[in-house]
Design a binder for these strands. Structure first.
Lengths: 191, 191
DNA sequence: GTCTATAACAAGATAGAC
DNA sequence: GTCTATCTTGTTATAGAC
């Protein structure tokens, strides 16, 4: 078989991903997942133990995807500054928010070690990648010696995550871009 | 009467504020509000039209309180840089998140102009205050002329809001402080 | 103003037929 | 593997007594 139809299990995971992104864990009901995926009650409980189990599969996939997307930009061409800039300016569905970061505002996700783990791991990985870039930039003389790579990496990530908050509050993606431009000005090498 | 007992209406609003902070709009049920406040079904629907109406009262009060708290620090003593630092370093219940900012992740809040308005207004006001401080710092020669006050203000706010995300993801307030230290290094006057 | 009763509907899951 | 009951509990509100 060269081209199999997408499985019910697959549709369940993808539907859950979309709903988690838009409505969070609390706001995502099994009923809504079933409606969106076109699956029946029985299918869902056959493939998954329940809502948390299905959500875990969805979150893991979203986390992996985010990692791949970031990887592509961060390990792309250019100087460390340019690659950080590319990460900050990459196309985003700003008003929809970060599919990973938004989960931190879900009490049920934070309360569950299993559900929080992929979120934590993704953000931690991103921080390491950014810190390594900053370190490189310091070695190349592009960034000041006085900068702490771990700190700057956290600031970059926080600006992105916070940019989503500002944008959603104002109802416009512009606020995200403004915050990013501010950070880039502060980071820009003197050269 | 010099000291009246706290009214039922008051207890309803305060209970709603606590629950909104911890569990968001979706996660806050009228039932939970009633249990926490000790009020009955009838009292709630006597004083408020329903959940959105009560939430609006709660959100407005939280927004006002946040403004007052920020005001105290931002218009306190010190140079512009020192006052921004004081804002960034002020005591926060980091793992609990921002009681105003977290509402932007609630689809029902964002979808309602009435509920989003106080959130938007508070963040906008904060941005203006910070921008004014940056402008002052530029005039006093403390910040570089090249800085755009609006942009830097957005970056400062985003770092705070994003700091909460990093902290909740890792389960530790340390991530918030790390991001703030990074930003302060970037902002610090050469002097 | 506050209470209890009631209700219509959604959430989350199980049972068992097909 | 998928489907349709069925079940328990929670959500959000209304009605009407006190």
């Amino acid at each position: 078989m060269y081209s199999a139809a997408v499985s019910t299990q697959e549709r369940l995971i993808e539907s859950t991903r979309e709903l988690l992104w838009d409505r969070g864990y609390m706001g995502t009901s099994p009923k809504a997942i079933l409606e969106r995926s076109g699956a029946g009650q029985g299918s869902m409980y056959h493939h998954f133990k329940g809502k948390p189990d299905l959500a875990l599969a969805a979150i893991r996939r979203t986390a992996e995807e985010m990692r791949a997307t970031a990887q592509a930009v961060l390990s792309g061409p250019g100087t460390p500054y340019e690659r950080i800039e590319a990460y900050l300016r990459r196309e985003r569905d700003v008003l929809r928010g970060c599919p990973v970061g938004r989960l931190t505002m879900d009490p049920d996700v934070i309360a569950s070690d299993a559900l929080r783990a992929p979120v934590d791991a993704t953000i931690d990985w991103l921080r390491e990648q950014l810190a390594q870039l900053v370190e490189e930039g310091k070695e190349q003389g592009q960034f000041a010696r006085a900068l702490d790579a771990e700190e700057i990496a956290a600031t970059v990530l926080a600006t992105v995550q916070g940019g989503y908050v500002l944008a959603r509050a104002s109802g416009s993606p512009a606020a995200f871009d403004t915050a990013v431009r501010g950070l880039l000005t502060l980071l820009r090498p003197a050269s």
